[in-house]
Amino acid sequence: MNNGNPTLPETGGTGDVLPNMIGRRKFLSYVGLAASAVTVVACSKDKNDVPEGAINLGSGDIGILNYAYALEQLEAAFYTQVIASPYSGMSATEQALLTDIRDHEIAHRNFFKTVLSGNAIPGLEVNFSAINFGTRDSVLATAKAFEDLGVAAYNGAGQLITSADNLVLAGKIVSVEARHAALIRDLISNGSFADNTVVDANGLDVSKSPAEVLGVAKAYLKSVLYAGNLPTS
C-alpha cells in the first residue's frame, strides 16, 4: 500500500559514548560490523534534516522512548478499535483476553507519554484502512503482526538505550508484549506461540532496528515519523 508518505530514512547515529582509545568514526564502523556484519560505516549523513511535516522522534534515550511511545500508540489504538467493534463470533474468553491486552497497551502508551512529558511526540494519526475489524482473521493477523513487531522492536532497541533504568523499563514491557504475541498466535493456531518464524535455531527471538520496524509500521500510520536522529549503537 502506498499512502503517499515519504520513505522513512535510514536511522542516523549520534553515538555519544566512545572508547577513549579510538575515534568516533572508527568506533561506529566497528559497531556497524558487530551488529550486522555487513555495514562498514554506520553513519555518514546529515542528522537533522527532518522532512516537512514529519514528526521527529528525537535523539538519545528520549528518541528511543518516543519510538516505543509511537509503537504503543499504534497498538493501543488498534485494540481500542478491536474492543469497540468486536469481530463477528468473538468468544467471551477472547473478548476478556483482548480487553486485557487493550488495557496493557493503554498503560504502556500513557506511561511513556507521562515519563516523556514535554519531550513526547504528539498523538499519532493511524491508518487502519487495510484492517477488517469485522473479521477474526483480519484482526488476529494484524494483532500478531503488531505484537511480533513490538517484541522485535524492543529487542533491537535495548542496545540503543544508555540509561540502565530505561533498559529495565523496556525489559519490563517487552516480556508482556511477548506474552501477548504468544497468546495471539495461539488464538490463531494453538502451538504457534514461538514457532520457527520468530525463534531461530539458537532459540533466539527476532530483533529489528528502528528503521526496519518503522518501515513496517508506517503502513498503519498517517503521521510520518522521522527516525534519523535515533542512536544507532
Binding site: 517484541v151 524492543y154 529487542n155 535495548g158 525489559g171 517487552v174 516480556s175 508482556v176 508484549e177 511477548a178 506474552r179 504475541a181 504468544a182 506461540f193 514461538a194 520468530v198 525463534v199 532459540g203 533466539l204 527471538d205 527476532v206 530483533s207
Partner: peptide, 11 residues
C-alpha cells in the same frame, strides 16, 4: 533480550 522474550512466549 532475544532469549528473554522467548522465555516470555513460553510462559
Amino acid at each position: 533480550l532475544q532469549i528473554h522474550s522467548v522465555e516470555a512466549r513460553h510462559a
